[in-house]
Design a binder for these strands. Structure first.
Length: 200
DNA sequence: TCACTGATCGTCT
DNA sequence: GACGATCAGTGAG
């Protein structure tokens, strides 16, 4: 059980996207979407930067990615492959399209509600993968642009003081910029997505 | 645990 | 008209 949860103010979020990605490892995501309260710890994040061919913002501002160009600490949610939702935390200064993709979470509280959203799924797979964690926490495109630092937010970032060892690797599922090591994960966690060999 | 495949649809070219 | 920052299912090792 987490000790004392402190809401994370926007001023505490690093403006630099790589720093933000590392900062987010070990932090808590609290969802009240759909009525149930669920809490999960961030254990895997990927950074998407300016000038990065793999980023949605690479070709400039569009209707889909406009949230990425807003101020940091907001939820950028998009649909991928027509089937799954993905959650990002926006980063950098307004006008700059950068974000941190949340790839995996460790369930902390509200397990029943999460299992209810993903019936028949083993606990280890409940929040392992960007699409799966959105389903598990009730996240969909309707919350795109939500302020994760707002007092009354249905989805918000919290800190319980936990410090986890951080590993670095290449990103997952891309066809461009395959070589860049912009994936950050909680070393030793059993809740990570991707192949085991990618998270030594 | 890994490799491969089909599903599926909004967004951008 | 093509293509994904993915997932679930299947089959082999």
């Amino acid at each position: 059980m987490p000790s004392r949860l402190k809401r994370i103010a926007r001023a505490l979020l690093p403006t630099d996207t790589i720093e933000l990605s590392r900062f987010l490892i070990g932090k808590l995501l609290v969802s009240r979407l759909g009525g149930a309260r669920t809490v999960a710890r961030i254990v895997e994040v990927e950074a998407y930067l300016t000038g990065d061919p793999a980023s949605h913002a690479f070709r400039g501002l569009t209707k889909r990615n406009k949230t990425m160009f807003g101020s940091r600490g907001h939820a950028y949610v998009y649909r991928i492959y027509g089937t799954s939702w993905c959650l990002n935390v926006t980063s950098a200064e307004p006008g700059i399209g950068e974000a941190a993709l949340i790839r995996a979470l460790e369930p902390v509280a509200g397990l029943d509600a999460i299992r209810e959203r993903r019936p028949g799924v083993p606990d280890r797979d409940l929040l392992r993968g960007p699409g799966r964690l959105c389903t598990g926490l009730g996240i969909d495109g309707s919350i795109d642009g939500l302020d994760l630092c707002a007092r009354d937010a249905q989805l918000a970032l919290f800190d319980d003081g936990a410090k986890l060892p951080i590993g670095i690797s290449t990103r997952i599922g891309l066809t461009r910029a395959l070589e860049r090591k912009l994936r950050y994960y909680a070393r030793g966690s059993k809740w990570l997505s991707g192949r085991v060999a990618l998270s030594p």
